[in-house]
Design a protein around this nucleic acid. Structure first.
Lengths: 174, 174
DNA sequence: TGGTACATGTAACATGTTACATGATTAG
DNA sequence: CTAATCATGTAACATGTTACATGTACCA
């Protein structure tokens, strides 16, 4: 029963959120998407799956269902220990999977107009994301950790926009 | 037999590379890691799996094994059509999964010194990546598509480094 | 009282990762 | 001859995605 394989990052993130008190799967999903969703995507199925797995491993405990079957999960001491081990171990390298770059890499197989269209679409999405982040930043509290992750988003989106603006006419369109 | 579900991006990328002529799984892996590996990770198992699947679907044809069982795959007309449809359809949004941001988001659960250590390690890796890209860029040909993807890498790594340098002392260490 | 949002969960499948088994060829 | 590298492939598992089934509570 000792030496279970280390937590995956999604499970660890859920445990991290549970440090602030018991939550249901639904609440965890919403909170996670809000707090870490921009750099660590997760969905409903995953949350429930990780919760059952962690309940099985004794890292969380399911409480009695409340109204609407809301079932609060509470982190256990084992869960806190597993989380502490995970966070202490340090994160791996990030993975960037950017399909637009794939399309551009094979750009010679596309009519130039179509490529420019695609590029413009994506630029607009990034513009919106940046605006959203900047707005968020204005209303942010003093927590340096939340600030740092949001700052990353802003720095990233700015860099992407600048990159778009520096693309040659063969790609951006003339 | 018609209306097979659309290609996944990894399969499409392999088809893209096969436009330049038949290649074995091994060569495809090496080429792909070189050409698109920085923004579209793939590994050996995936390559062979996609090749068999695509062979089954008639998008590629396996040739006769040569020395060392090297088995060249050739793109078929159906493969070219599937690739064209994929590239024309346009890419989805990128996914960034950045475990370091997860660690920072939960930074209050770490001793500050340890967090600073982790941050410094990651900064160093990004520094190296940037240097590698810049070096690559110096020897690059005139292909605007390859240039654009490499420029993305450079813009990204520069933004990440700047972000590192702007982190507050609670995170970077004093 | 009917629609919308809440809430849980499962099933099926796609994709990604790691490890292993097998053998050929080449370089030293 | 032997170690390293080349090369293919499979197995097992982890993770991510999509779709569906089921039902509850709230609000207009």
């Amino acid at each position: 029963m000792p030496s279970e394989r280390p937590l995956n990052s999604t499970a660890a993130a859920l445990l991290g959120l549970l440090h602030d008190g018991p939550m249901t799967g639904w609440d965890l999903l919403a909170t996670a998407q809000l707090v870490i969703g921009d750099f660590w995507a997760l969905n409903q199925s995953q949350v429930y799956r990780e919760l059952s797995a962690m309940a099985g491993a004794g890292l969380v405990e399911a409480g009695d269902p409340g109204p609407r079957d809301r079932r609060p999960y509470t982190i256990t001491d084992a869960g806190r220990a597993a989380f502490a081990a995970w966070v202490r171990r340090g994160p791996g390298a990030e993975t960037v999977r950017f399909p637009l770059l794939l399309t551009i890499a094979f750009g010679r197989h596309l009519p130039p107009g179509r490529l420019a269209e695609i590029v413009a679409e994506h630029r607009a999405r990034h513009r919106e994301r940046l605006d959203g982040y900047v707005e968020l930043a204005a209303g942010l509290g003093p927590d340096p950790y939340a600030r740092a992750t949001l700052d990353f988003g802003i720095a990233y989106e700015r860099a992407v926009l600048d990159w778009f603006d520096g693309l040659p006419p063969e790609i951006r369109g003339g």
